[in-house]
Write a protein that binds this DNA or RNA. Structure first.
Length: 639
RNA sequence: GCCGACGUAGCUCAAUGGAAGAGCAGCUGACUUGUAAUCAGCAGGUUGCGGGUUCGAAUCCCAUCGUCGGCUCCA
């Protein structure tokens, strides 16, 4: 056997090395920045430790923190250091899992007493010691039996459970640094000293494997970076993001409020209502264009209807109930049963299809108290719902239209989103075969239109699979907004039919879909997306006049009336304050246009324009400005 | 729902077992103001709610309500 191997680098250059050389040795010879920055290596596509010997010809590249895989490895190694620190300080702590996550890492521990914030500081200190000790991180491979034996002796019950579930033929690897040993696939950084700066951020309970039937472990979240300045930058970014929080801006801009007397049930203030109404006006306009008709169904419907729809069986825990004249009623958590009743009021022909019945329906759902979150997760909300009744042959085309409609809406607001396909859940209605047909129909539409998507196994609605449109809040948390759900169940349950070309009765198919999702949630994301600085068409106050002194009030009122005639929302700040004060106030309220009027403007019949985000843009006649404003508003411009 | 933290004036926060306070906002008055905060005065509280310990509780304990973070990221 040849004792040389050929290594090919990313630039396609090749070099010969002795067999068994490690990537670390190679990068040491290369020197330069990479020598310091390399964390792991990639050989023929596989990520390995720098200390793993190379046994054959291979392509080789080095991974540093700036690579997406690099920061993951870095954070994963950081989580091991945290676990080591925890075990040093709390001998009885059993290990759960400790992966890297976006922007950081966590580790779950089973400890007799939960951690306190002070414990976090101690753990962080211990981590710094471990880093300073610069312990080499070594990989070991064991047989299944050896691994089980080892973790049984250590009393690591959770690790045992994990090993037992690994496939029979899987190589079981462990990583050791000093006295600390953990089950881990790797790769890891070569030594603990590679980690330059760590920060523990928060503490939380987390069920073992995310299942509430399992014990609750203590989870510590943290992050790490290669430089203190990068960490500081990240922390500053978090602080900045919090300023966009819709709960903060919602109060500051007087848009909505929440009250102890109504947990999860939002109150909309006049300025919030203006935005809501603008969203709905736009929605009605676009839906008319797209061939939808609007209906409205009651909020309270009788129990037997919910039994018929399957909600009684599948959704009862989330529903509110009431009694009327001794009969049981439920407050609707979804709009579908009402729409089914409307459909069944007369005969339908295939010629009407697709029949698109839209409803801005107020639904109530009993969400767990711990999940409530501002306007993003509430207990009552308005869905911009629609049920589309159609022939099975129309499904794919119609799903495509829904996707296009949602895309059109999100583009108007400048949202970026991602798409997820959710499949059959445990608690599902209907045959597996129907689910299969429905799921692959959705999948095909996405694939044929080259829309990238992630699959969420088991996350579908109880009546059908769905395509979800996900937006992010100010802290990057995901929220489902738009959705298109295929339903073969409701038509059965409600015995829906249409008369086909052949003169016979047939079963239609339904798409449930929402575009905004919930007006409340979408509104919250809009607030965060724009940081409260809404585009002109949405701004509660679009233009504010700032007269310099009393003698300019009359002129301001005259000019304001001209704008109001064109449908603008205008205010005049007639308070007895200096113009600087009025400007500051209007700026804080994020009003798009301030028009300052004093002697100079009155004389020449002008307004001095101060534009949000740009500042003073000089005086001009109101008529000229009006044209710009009308254009900006009607085009729904974003700047 | 579960784990943890938090709850003081409309808002942001101080007072850590010994007299409940500040800034902003609000109200009143003066100033008639030129591109991000004019000055002065006034008012604002059963410290979330209920119980307990104590001579004395915003502070300590129990209970309850609400809020915040997490419970999805798989060794």
């Amino acid at each position: 056997m040849n004792d040389k191997i050929i290594v090919t680098f990313p630039d396609d250059s090749k070099k010969e090395f002795p067999r068994g050389i490690t990537p670390q040795e190679i990068v040491n010879q290369m020197g330069g920045r990479l020598k310091k920055e390399a964390l792991a290596a990639r050989t023929n596509g596989e990520l390995i430790d720098l200390t793993r010997p190379l046994t054959g010809d291979t392509r080789l590249s080095f991974i540093s923190f700036d690579d997406p895989e690099g920061s993951k490895i870095y954070r994963h190694s950081s989580s091991h250091i945290m676990a080591q620190a925890v075990q040093r300080l709390f001998g009885d702590a059993k290990l759960g899992i400790g992966p890297s996550i976006e922007n950081g890492f966590y580790y779950d521990f089973d400890v007799s007493e939960s951690f306190s914030p002070e414990d976090l500081e101690k753990i962080e200190e211990e981590m710094k010691k471990i880093i300073k000790e610069n312990l080499p991180v070594e990989r070991k491979e064991l047989s299944r039996e050896e691994a089980l034996d080892l973790f049984r002796k250590k009393g690591e019950d959770y690790k045992l459970e994990l090993i037992e579930e690994l496939p029979e033929d899987e190589i079981i690897s462990l990583y050791q640094q000093g006295e600390f040993l953990d089950l881990c696939a790797g790769p890891h950084v070569p030594s603990t000293g590679k980690i330059k700066t760590v920060k523990l951020l928060s503490l939380a309970g987390a069920y073992w494997r995310g299942d509430e039937r399992n014990p609750m472990l203590q989870r510590i979240y943290g992050t790490s970076f290669t430089k203190q300045s990068l960490l500081q930058e990240y922390l500053d970014r978090l602080e900045e993001a919090k300023k966009r929080d819709h709960r903060k801006l919602g109060r500051e801009l007087d848009l909505y409020s929440m009250h102890e007397e109504a947990p999860g049930f939002p109150f909309f203030h006049p300025k919030g209502m203006i935005i809501r109404e603008e969203l709905l006006k736009f929605w009605r306009q676009e839906h008319r264009k797209a061939g939808y008709q609007e209906i409205q169904t009651p909020i309270i419907l009788e129990r037997k209807l919910w039994e018929q729809s399957g909600h009684w069986e599948h959704y009862k825990e989330n529903m509110y109930f009431t009694k009327i004249d001794d009969a049981d009623f439920a407050v609707k958590p979804m709009n579908c049963p009402g729409a089914m009743l409307v459909y069944n009021t007369r005969m339908h022909s295939y010629r009407e299809f697709p029949l698109r019945l839209a409803e801005l329906g107020l639904v109530h759902r009993h969400e767990l108290s711990g999940t409530l979150h501002g306007l993003l997760r509430v207990r009552n909300f308005t869905q911009d719902d629609a049920h589309i009744f159609m022939l099975p042959s129309q499904v794919k085309e119609e799903v495509k239209k829904v996707i296009d409609l949602i895309d059109h809406f999100y583009k108007v607001f400048g949202f970026t989103y991602h798409v997820e396909l959710s499949t059959k859940p445990e608690k599902a209605m209907g045959s597996g075969e129907l689910w299969e047909i429905a799921t692959s129909a959705l999948r095909e539409v996405l694939e044929e239109n080259e829309i990238p998507f992630k699959v969420n196994e088991g996350d579908g609605a109880f009546y059908g699979p769905k395509i979800d449109f996900i937006l992010e809040d100010c802290l990057g948390r995901n929220w489902q907004c738009g959705t298109a759900q295929l339903d073969f169940q409701m038509p059965e349950k409600f015995d829906l039919s249409y008369i086909g070309e052949d003169g016979q009765r047939h079963r239609p198919v339904i798409i449930h879909r929402v575009v905004y999702g919930a007006i409340e949630r979408f509104f919250a994301l809009l607030i965060e997306h724009f940081g409260g600085a809404f585009p002109l068409w949405l701004a509660p106050v679009q233009v504010i006049f700032l007269p310099i002194a009393d003698r300019h009030f009359e002129y301001a009122r005259k000019k304001a009336a001209q704008l109001e005639e064109q449908g603008f929302r205008v205010e005049i700040d007639e308070r007895n304050e200096k113009v600087g004060y009025k400007i500051r106030e209007a700026q804080v309220q994020k009003i798009p246009y301030m028009l300052i009027v004093g002697d100079k403007e009155m004389e020449n019949s002008l307004v001095a324009v101060r534009k949000r985000g740009e500042g003073d843009i000089g005086p001009q006649p109101l008529e000229a400005l009006m044209e710009t404003l009308i254009n900006e508003r009607d085009e729904k411009s974003i700047y």
